[in-house]
């Protein structure tokens, strides 16, 4: 019990640092760019436009409201891929600081994931524009979207913690992970409907790929105007808590050794 209160105490003491680090990432991301924060909205729109051109001319899928379908999958996947890639370097990248002063190490990983999350919240602006253009009906079910985002956030945080500690000891992880991310992108129904896959593959994706759960929850709400299946929500939340638990456990186990390797 004292252990937990101590942890909370430390976290509260370093809350301003978390705030500062997140602000720093956001400020620096667009410093010296002419349009600044607007890029957070423009960039997803541009990528969505290109993907739409490709997939409605070169490969055709029979999906209603394809732009909406696409941008939801793309936003969620991009957040997970960008945030974990950033988090992977959060410990090694702040080595100078960690060698010179004591700071709880998870703060750096947490701040990376959080700044990517803030960036995704900006990107929701692009999504809303697409919703308006495609005449999506706004329903009360949409109030559930923050819960979906929270699931994705915790999942990414767990994965980020795991990658961050791994990278300290083995720099190989970056290459392995970038290959994994490509595989993961194709194994997630971002631009194709899952019904198009062979049954066994579809079953596999539904049961081992948590991104499927998050994206589908989101799409059901927006495209069908219905509340997602309870099992889907349960599975998605369980996966994110599991990932967070596993990631933090490994991180805590190894963090005292970081200083000898960075």
């Amino acid at each position: 019990m004292t252990m937990i209160t101590k942890r909370v105490e430390v976290f509260r003491r370093y809350w301003p640092l978390l705030e500062q680090l997140v602000m720093k990432d956001i400020k620096l991301k667009y410093r010296r760019s002419f349009l600044g924060y607007l890029w957070s909205i423009l960039n997803p729109l541009m990528i969505m436009g290109i993907m739409m051109l490709i997939f409605s001319n070169m490969f055709r899928f029979d999906i209603d409201n394809y732009p909406v379908y696409l941008i939801i999958g793309q936003t969620i996947y991009n957040f997970v891929s960008e945030s974990t890639n950033q988090a992977m370097w959060s410990i090694t990248g702040n080595a100078a600081l960690m060698k010179k002063t004591y700071v709880p190490k998870y703060i750096f990983t947490l701040s990376r994931i959080t700044s990517s999350f803030v960036n995704m919240v900006f990107a929701l602006g692009a999504m809303i524009i697409v919703f308006f253009v495609c005449r999506v009906k706004f329903t009360a079910f949409m109030l559930f979207i923050p819960v979906i985002l929270a699931q994705v956030y915790l999942f990414a945080l767990g994965l980020g913690l795991f990658l961050a500690q791994g990278t300290v000891f083995f720099r190989d992880i970056q290459y392995i992970y970038s290959a994994c991310l490509t595989a993961w992108m194709y194994a997630t129904p971002i631009f194709y409907p899952i019904s198009q896959l062979p049954e066994r593959l579809a079953w596999l994706i539904k049961h081992v790929n948590p991104l499927y759960s998050y994206i589908t929850q989101f799409r059901v709400i927006v495209l069908e105007g219905a509340f997602p299946d309870g099992r889907l929500i349960l599975y998605g939340s369980a996966m994110s808590l599991l990932m967070l638990g596993a990631g933090s456990w490994v991180f805590m186990k190894t963090q005292d050794k970081f200083i000898l390797y960075i």
Partner: peptide, 11 residues
Amino acid sequence: FLNGAVLGYNK
């Protein structure tokens, strides 16, 4: 402000 936060002080 960043360095202050590293030392554990708020804005």
